[in-house]
Design a binder for these strands. Structure first.
Length: 594
RNA sequence: GGCUCCAUAGUUCAAGGGAUAGAACAAAAGUUUCCUAAACUUUAGAUCCAGGUUCGAAUCCUGGUGGAGUCACCA
């Protein structure tokens, strides 16, 4: 039982005995630094139930706690705040418990609880991953890890949009301008190669529109009737009809793209437990459109199109199948969701990591699934995040203003290298070791920078200036971790001996550290319930700041007393291990030296 | 125009309805015989506006202002 729970019960008892009132909850907060005390009970909060002067109520409770709780050493009341001082023995004992727990803060999944499926990335197969995908991937991966740490079984997945006109555009351009280029013949990553043809298609398309307009065709008409576009549409029809050549080319080019993506994912450090392809699930979606029609969830219009009327729920009517019988975007999403539950019967809920421009789409999707009668439809969550904009404005792939994911990762490593060289760090390391470290540091900077921000908020990303290595950044935290490892390497005494709680009073800085460490499990749970890696990031930073202050103010290895040395090394070590665990939830590695 | 999201120091981010709104970067000043100075310490600086609810509001409600997104038989 945590201190807070214990105190909570005792405060309730105090109120019950003294005022004959039964409290349901007691409100706690950390005591502000300018007051003495370790934990604070907000008396204001109980004024609704307990009549009287808040200060007197506080005094009464305080006195009761002094008598009845061995952990309470003292108290003071300021306005409606009851500040409680906790005994040193409690801290030492509490810390000894934390120390023994190797997976501190992490909860083992319970067998009977339903699993959660987390979807993220979900790229189109016609162009490489860019900065927007980076935020998506980092968020999705991190939320999956956080959910795992909070005790859930988690499956990571993605839906690959491998079907549609956009792929045909790249295919057509490759056939026409490709000269049989392959990733092997050009040395290009497969996704880059295919992306180049997407651009080439667009250039040719624009040229054709121009010449049509010159001939007097209206712009609108020209956009629709440009020969190259019509040919791409013809190709899509052939694909849907299963034309052998088209399907073979489609498979070949998709394979290139997947190879390229795999490399980028590996570099980013994200992975998936299962993959879904749109080309496999859209048909199932259509089956359930038929099912919904039977149930009366959907209705067919005269032209054959199928709609879901959501006006009673305050939304619009939504089309779920075209008049020609083909699937739309949402049809496929319905199918994919159902397919996933079929494949993984232990899944009881899903998290969709998709940008906030699709907020409306997901409210509609979730509502439709609920109307179709699936019990798991109540446990769907759209992990919606803001766009990543550049100082120059929005990223547009056709205008060449995208920040490529691979380039970005490489640049980060290069920046890390430049800064490390300048500071003269890492002397005596082999070149491969250095390169590996630069990558870890560069990625740490990038990931932390993106994840520390509330997902809902839009990020303005300046590739040149956005990445710092000082202050509230990944490298700063990595650096602290590395420094602690250095302390441990130099400790030439047995620091694993647990100290006797009654024999030691704590230095204020030590106490602060223990307090900060004790918060970690709660932070993990909050981050999981709010789907927010930012909570973990900011907590880790606070912990590291607390440590740095401690490091600067007390001597660790140079302390006179052996007991002091032992507990201080233990504290440092635990800080490092919590940092490591916290960062593992963000997908960031921590180096032993830097 | 309807709906959704956002608005906090010069800048980038914090703040479960609670005390004097916290950090970092940038600016100014200081700290290395000692465990990694990518550090630490100090100074200066902010809740878009107007109402309301509350003992108490950056936070909740209403109305503005500014920005973004969305309102396709696109995905």
């Amino acid at each position: 039982m945590s201190l807070q729970d214990t105190l909570s019960n005792q405060v309730k008892q105090a109120v019950n005995k003294s005022f004959d009132v039964t409290l349901e909850t007691v409100e706690f907060q950390a005591t502000r630094k300018e007051f003495t005390g370790d934990i604070t009970v907000v008396v204001f909060h109980m004024l609704r139930f307990v009549k009287g002067n808040p200060v007197q109520i506080g005094e009464t409770i305080g006195n009761y706690l002094m008598e009845h709780s061995k952990d309470v050493k003292g108290f003071n009341v300021v306005k409606g705040f009851l500040n409680i001082e906790i005994s040193d023995a409690y801290y030492v004992q509490g810390f000894n418990t934390i120390l023994k727990d190797d997976a501190y803060g992490f909860v083992k999944p319970s067998a009977n609880e339903k699993a959660i499926m987390v979807e993220y990335s979900s790229p189109n197969t016609n162009k490489p991953l860019h900065l927007g995908h980076v935020r998506n991937n980092l968020l999705g991966y991190s939320v999956a890890e956080i959910l795992k740490a909070s005790g859930k079984k988690v499956y990571k997945t993605q839906i690959i949009n491998d079907r549609g006109i956009h792929i045909c555009k790249s295919m057509l351009a490759w056939e026409r301008f490709g000269n049989n280029e392959t990733p092997e013949s050009t040395g290009l990553k497969g996704d880059k190669l295919v992306g180049n043809y997407y651009v080439k298609f667009d250039q040719a398309y624009k040229k054709e529109i121009e010449s049509l307009v010159e001939k007097g065709v209206s712009m609108e008409e020209a956009k629709k009737t440009a020969p190259i576009l019509m040919e791409a549409q013809k190709m899509l029809l052939k694909w849907e009809a299963g034309d052998t050549d088209v399907v073979a080319l489609w498979k070949k080019m998709n394979t290139w793209v997947y190879d390229g993506f795999a490399e980028t994912y590996k570099n980013m450090g994200v992975d998936f437990d299962s993959l879904y392809y749109e080309s496999n699930t859209y048909l199932l979606g259509k089956e359930f459109v038929a099912e919904g029609l039977k149930k009366g969830v959907f209705a067919k219009e005269a032209d054959g199109s199928v709609w879901c009327d959501l006006t009673e729920d305050g939304l619009d009517k939504k089309i779920v199948q075209r008049s020609d019988g083909t699937a739309v975007y949402i049809t496929q999403d319905i199918g994919t969701a159902i397919q996933r539950i079929k494949d993984f019967p232990d899944v009881g809920g899903m998290v969709y990591t998709v940008g906030n421009e699709q907020d409306y789409h997901f409210t509609v999707l979730f509502l439709i699934l609920k109307k179709l009668g699936f019990d798991w439809a109540d446990n769907l969550y759209h992990l919606s995040y803001g766009m990543v904009d550049l100082p120059s404005g929005k990223m547009k792939s056709r205008e060449g203003t995208v920040v490529d994911a691979d380039d970005l990762i490489n640049e980060m490593a290069a920046t890390a290298e430049a800064i490390s060289e300048e500071l003269g760090k890492l002397e005596g390391y082999s070149e491969p070791e250095k390169q590996e470290l630069y990558k870890v540091i560069g990625l740490g900077a990038l990931k932390y920078h993106i994840l520390k921000v509330d997902p809902k908020k839009r990020i303005l990303f300046d590739p040149k200036e956005s990445i710092d290595f000082q202050g509230n950044t990944g490298p700063f935290i990595q650096y602290t971790y590395a420094r602690i490892q250095s302390i441990i390497r130099k400790a030439d005494f047995d620091y694993t001996i647990p100290l006797n709680a009654d024999e030691r009073t704590l230095h204020p800085k030590e106490k602060e550290l223990v307090k900060q460490l004790e918060l970690f499990p709660e932070v993990v749970q909050n981050a999981a319930s709010q789907h927010s890696p930012a909570l973990i990031a900011n907590y880790t930073y606070d912990l590291v700041k607390e440590f740095n202050s401690f490091y600067q103010n007390v001597s660790i290895l140079g302390a006179d007393d052996l007991n002091d040395k032992i507990i201080r090394v233990q504290l440092s070590n635990k800080v490092a291990s919590v940092v490591k665990q916290g960062f593992s939830l963000l997908g960031i590695e921590v180096p032993e030296r830097m």
